[in-house]
């Protein structure tokens, strides 16, 4: 569960201050699938970074699964990213020179378990076990994004954060990716937070949160979550 209370983020503490977030409050339940939409500069990427524990708010509170994370040390944040959060990026962000399976293993290395078995399981869940030894250059965009999802899944996170996951894909591959997210959310009750420009992608979520100028301007319920 994600609870955000009046979070602000100010960049550039010198002469020019950029107020990326101006007091955002938000609550996302375990097992929800939520889309975060808004034009560029609306602060959605900043909010995403804060929720993903890559960044910390200037003020306000962020409680993740009952843990106040806005005041944690860098090392603790890294541990939370490792255990609780899976990232999926628009540009896939796979390590270019290593195989699909090695990419999926990466989070395991940092949690000190390093299990080929878990990595294979994760690849199986995205239907790519057959290409485990291929490098990113040998995979299509859709396949690369599935490897990235497998990497996000491998440590059994509570939340997957997907930043424009279909932005670099053709519509067919995009639909496949969305189908995977939808299934993960429905079957495994993994919380999924999507950042997107695409209304169709947004409509796959149960709820759309619209941001503008660092504030939430609107919330739309698309459908009830399956509880």
């Amino acid at each position: 569960m994600i609870e955000i209370e009046n979070v602000t983020k100010v960049y550039g503490m010198g002469a020019v201050e950029v107020h990326a977030l101006r007091g955002v409050s938000l609550r996302i339940e375990q097992g929800e699938m939520v889309a975060l939409m808004g034009p560029s500069g609306s602060g959605k990427s900043t909010l995403m970074s804060i929720i993903g524990c890559l960044d910390q708010p200037t003020s306000g509170a962020y409680v993740l699964d009952g843990l106040e994370v806005s005041k944690l040390t860098d090392n603790r944040l890294a541990e939370i990213r490792n255990r609780k959060i899976g990232f999926v990026f628009q540009t896939f962000n796979l390590l270019p020179r290593v195989s699909a399976i090695a990419n999926v293993e990466l989070p395991l290395i940092y949690s000190g378990v390093r299990g080929k078995r878990q990595a294979r399981e994760a690849l199986e869940r995205v239907g790519l076990l057959g290409r485990a030894s291929h490098g990113p250059a040998q995979l299509s965009g859709g396949e690369q994004q599935r490897v990235a999802i497998a990497r996000a899944l491998v440590n059994h996170p509570a939340i997957i954060l997907a930043d424009e996951p279909t932005g670099n894909l053709d519509s067919k591959a995009g639909e496949e990716i969305m189908a995977i997210f939808e299934e993960l959310n429905r079957k495994e009750r993994i919380t999924i937070l999507l950042v997107t420009h695409d209304q169709d992608v947004g409509n796959m979520a149960q709820r759309i949160i619209r941001l503008r100028d660092g504030m939430i301007i609107k919330e739309e319920i698309i459908r009830e979550a399956d509880r």
Binding site: N75, A78, R81, N93, L95, L106, P107, Y110, S111
Partner: peptide, 16 residues
């Protein structure tokens, strides 16, 4: 640089 970003995102600490 990007590799470092990826590693940090999936849980690498500064000391790693």
């Amino acid at each position: 640089t990007r590799e470092i970003g990826i590693r940090r995102a999936v849980g690498a600490k500064r000391r790693d």
